[in-house]
């Protein structure tokens, strides 16, 4: 019976037909959608919050910018400890024995101390003090640099980021370098310097984005705009506009345990990787629904089709 039904459904329809002008339907649909789009655009417009800049960050929260610069020098920032694809300073995430992040390797090498602090400062005409600090830093061994920057980073953490309260210590040129970068950022010079590293034409914003993410400025702005992942931020948009609502299922996983708890191992700590695997599997499942027992039978069991084809069933007495 099932095979007969399948053959019947596959064969050209031999029953009654009705006139149906698909070209007219398409033109009407295009006109209607165009008019609705025009109306929505005219009434509501579209979101366009200005991008954040290093200038604004250093101006509005100088201590946080300064402390982030120190973290970059100390190698303790998110970028400096990230791992692939930016460096080899972390193992990245894994799903069981699959260390795909690590295996993919370093394809966009970022040396946080050099790329975010030293190289941008080196492009500037510097005061004697900062030029001297830069020369001292460049001449020092890696172990000495690490000792200076780590000591200062620890000291800043102990006073909870209140730069003015940091006691004197063996910090070498690190305070002068951080002050120099803060000053450069306040002038707007860092925004341009980070983008232009490597040439005249640039379309790659990786360094700016990563540096931004290392501090509190971007994170605070995301929280204020209700865009954090833990609050369905993935499907939100700035202002009162709809965002990528179609990502609701992707976003859903970040709302529930163990995915929403970074301390929970192994899944919570590797939530990004696990959720991508889940969504990849679900996407494949969507594509293969006709082959999945149970899921493919639900439409026959739950009679929503009786409403869709109500007239047909009535006329046929089915």
């Amino acid at each position: 019976m099932k095979r007969n039904s399948e053959a019947f459904d596959a064969n050209p329809w031999q029953g009654r037909t009705r006139k149906y002008d698909i070209v007219k339907e398409g033109v009407i649909a295009l006109v209607v959608v165009s008019l609705v789009t025009l109306s929505l655009s005219a009434f509501f417009g579209s979101p366009d919050e200005k991008p954040l800049t290093f200038k604004n960050w250093a101006t509005t929260n100088a201590d946080n910018f300064y402390a982030t610069a120190v973290q970059e020098l100390a190698g303790s920032s998110g970028t400096a400890t990230y791992g692939a694809p930016y460096n080899e300073n972390g193992d990245g995430l894994n799903v069981g024995p699959l260390w795909l992040q690590k295996w993919a390797g370093v394809t966009h090498m970022i040396d946080a101390a050099n790329d975010f602090v030293i190289a941008p400062l080196s492009t500037q005409v510097l005061s004697t003090e900062i030029a001297s600090a830069l020369a001292t830093w460049n001449a020092a061994s890696d172990s000495v640099k690490e000792s200076w920057a780590a000591s200062y980073d620890d000291a800043i953490n102990k006073v909870e980021g209140d730069i003015g309260a940091v006691p004197a210590g063996p910090y070498g040129p690190v305070p002068a370098l951080a002050a120099g970068l803060t000053s450069m950022a306040k002038s707007g010079g860092l925004d341009a310097a980070l983008l232009s590293q490597g040439g005249f034409f640039q379309t790659d914003n990786t360094k700016q984005i990563l540096f931004f993410g290392d501090g509190a400025y971007l994170d605070d702005a995301g929280t204020a705009a209700n865009l954090q992942g833990g609050t369905w931020g993935m499907m939100n948009e700035t202002g009162r506009y709809p965002g990528q609502a179609w990502l609701w299922l992707y976003s859903f996983w970040y709302q529930i345990p163990p995915f929403n708890n970074e301390e929970s191992k192994p899944i919570g700590a590797n939530a990004d990787a696990y959720i991508l695997f889940i969504m990849g599997g679900m996407s494949l499942g969507l594509i293969l629904i006709p082959l999945i027992p149970g899921v493919r039978s639900l439409p026959m069991l739950i009679p929503i089709h009786r409403r869709i084809w109500r007239r047909y069933y009535e006329e046929e007495g089915l």
């Binding site: 919050e49 984005i209 931004f212 993410g213 971007l218 995301g222 705009a225 993935m234 948009e237």
Partner: peptide, 11 residues
């Protein structure tokens, strides 16, 4: 090329 794209990119 606005704040939203900065945020989405980072996340």
């Amino acid at each position: 090329t606005n704040f939203d794209s900065q945020w989405i990119t980072f996340e």
